[in-house]
């Protein structure tokens, strides 16, 4: 039976995990490779690294993290942050990433999605969408794409944009609600559902997970096929196994391999 996925996401800056990870006895809580190994052992279905200050100069640091992770963890790995060119994607894949996540570069130049998908296949091109609600009280829901950590409003409708990037070859959508990110109030379910129902590819719900019920909501009500979370796992609030057990009790199919 096909299972829904739980994806821990690690924010990485200069080769170090931002804010650290403290859910198990890691020798070095700031080492993304150690964190990845621990999540692998904990039953995570996939891992996501986000390079939060990716630049030309420090690109090599992230590639080294990806390379060392791929040597130790035999599980799928998505890497995002500063992915702007076909060469950026090639370097990530050659280092051991399975999927590259494109964010701003797809907003500014849609053709990049097509070039990337044609070069590497749809299955390894994830388009990350940061969306914020722009409709007012009593108006029909409308979300727009925001860039630069939610500061720049683009005027682009999030659902239309999702359809467009999928038609260009995106194999998966990583959808983050900028309204909910960091709030622990749960996913923006209406947004998740609007996007998931609009596109034929898998949608990963992201932004706002504060408890295990939120993970269930994202799948059951948001129609996502995967849920991404960071802090509830990183800071030991819950283990991935607890999350899966909770989702299984709610009737969702999860992978509980020993």
């Amino acid at each position: 039976m096909f299972k829904v996925r739980i994806i821990p996401c690690l924010d990485v800056k200069d080769g170090r995990v931002v804010k650290g990870i403290n859910f198990v006895d890691l020798r070095d809580a700031g080492d993304p490779v150690e964190a990845a190994i621990a999540y692998d052992a904990a039953g995570a279905d996939e891992l996501c690294f986000l390079d939060i200050n990716a630049s030309h100069e420090n690109r090599g640091i992230m590639l080294d993290v990806v390379r060392r992770t791929a040597e130790a963890c035999f599980m799928p790995l998505t890497v995002g942050g500063g992915v702007r060119t076909v060469d950026d994607i090639r370097a990530l894949l050659n280092s051991g990433a399975d999927k590259a996540s494109i964010n701003t570069a797809a907003v500014t130049r849609r053709a990049f999605v097509k070039e990337a998908a044609e070069k590497f296949g749809d299955q390894c091109i994830v388009v990350a969408i940061d969306a914020k609600k722009v409709s007012g009280e009593g108006e029909p829901n409308r979300w727009e794409i925001f860039t630069h950590g939610g500061r720049n409003r683009t005027g682009i409708d999030a659902v239309d944009y999702a359809r467009e990037v999928v038609s260009l070859g995106a194999g998966e959508i990583l959808l983050t609600s900028m309204d909910r990110d960091g709030t622990k109030q749960g996913f923006d379910i209406a947004l998740t559902r609007a996007v998931a129902d609009a596109v034929p590819v898998p949608v990963i719900a992201s932004g706002g997970v504060g408890n295990l019920d939120h993970l269930v909501d994202g799948i059951r009500d948001g129609h996502a096929t995967a849920v991404l979370a960071a802090s509830i796992f990183h800071f030991g609030q819950h283990t991935v196994r607890e999350a899966k057990a909770h989702m299984a009790r709610a009737g969702l199919p999860v992978r509980l391999d020993p």
Binding site: V4, D45, G171, E172, V201, P202, T225
Partner: peptide, 12 residues
């Protein structure tokens, strides 16, 4: 029809 393509994820 609600199943997504690609078939992406874990299966038995």
């Amino acid at each position: 029809p609600t199943l997504k393509i690609p078939h992406m994820g874990w299966n038995t």
